[in-house]
């Protein structure tokens, strides 16, 4: 099975053809199977992230033909092109720099004011949100996230204009909104905590969700129904005032 792998060394990008040898006749390999075999067979320094091989850790996301896929649990077919996630800055080969997303949440996750009684069950919607594995597939075509890069992709930007991920991106994304919505529906969050979570969502650019055709979750969480709409609804008047 012939596929293409986009590599990048010391800033130089190259497209490498790789011929995957199936381990048995019926094998329909995952993307990660191809990467592991390539590393063992001719590309020993190939850089890619992976962790659990079971779609739980969220670190192995790559783009297949320009769309994000979780490498350990997405099948690959003849002619596919594997490239690093386009929504984050590329480092080496398929490895992108992820930490600008997490760092934007610093100081925004306060859950202070919780009650002392921890023995309270959470609603189903709460658990739907803690299923997020932080794979960042949801950054794909997100207009809010694109604001960090002048509305485009990080690698299209001039080097001097690129934001420093170490500072945390200023504009949010479905993942950061999910983190905030989780705080809002946690039965143990105080009213002040809930309202500060909404403030943070607005600060991260919730207005970008108005009129957006919507985001897609890598593990099937209903982002629009369980994150975006509840937040837009709660923020409605304030967003309208903002214009």
């Amino acid at each position: 099975m012939k596929v293409e792998i986009v590599t990048r060394r010391d800033g130089e990008q190259e497209i490498v053809a790789y011929d995957y040898v199936p381990r048995d006749d019926s094998e329909k390999p995952m993307i990660l199977d191809v990467l592991l075999q390539a590393q063992a067979n001719g590309m020993p320094d190939l850089a890619f992230r992976y962790g659990c091989r079971a779609r739980n850790c969220g670190v192995c996301t790559v783009d297949i033909n320009g769309r994000p896929r979780i490498a350990c649990r997405a099948r690959i077919k003849e002619g596919d092109r594997i490239s690093p996630m386009a929504t984050l800055p590329a480092l080496s080969d398929l490895v992108v720099r992820r930490d600008g997303v997490a760092r934007q949440m610093r100081g925004r996750l306060a859950t202070a004011g919780q009650g002392n009684d921890l023995n309270v069950s959470a609603p189903d919607d709460y658990h739907a949100l803690t299923g997020c594995i932080e794979c960042y597939a949801c950054l794909h075509e997100c207009p809010m996230h694109a604001r960090n890069f002048d509305g485009g992709l990080p690698d299209e930007q001039a080097v001097e204009d690129r934001p420093d991920p170490a500072e945390g991106y200023t504009s949010g994304n479905p993942f950061s909104l999910l983190k905030l919505q989780r705080i809002r529906i946690d039965p143990l969050t105080s009213e002040a905590g809930k309202s500060s979570a909404l403030d943070n969502a607005i600060d991260l650019g919730l207005d970008a969700c108005v009129g957006c055709k919507g985001c897609k979750c890598g593990v099937g969480i209903d982002l629009i129904g369980k994150v975006i709409w509840p937040m837009l609804e709660a923020a409605g008047d304030r967003l309208a005032e903002k214009g």
């Binding site: 997405a74 739907a128 997020c132 594995i133 099937g220 969480i221």
Partner: peptide
């Protein structure tokens, strides 16, 4: 069994 069903998930949606 969470998260998500096979249909909804990006991972399983790319059957060869």
């Amino acid at each position: 069994v969470m998260p998500g069903g096979a249909d909804a998930a990006v991972g399983e949606a790319t059957q060869a």
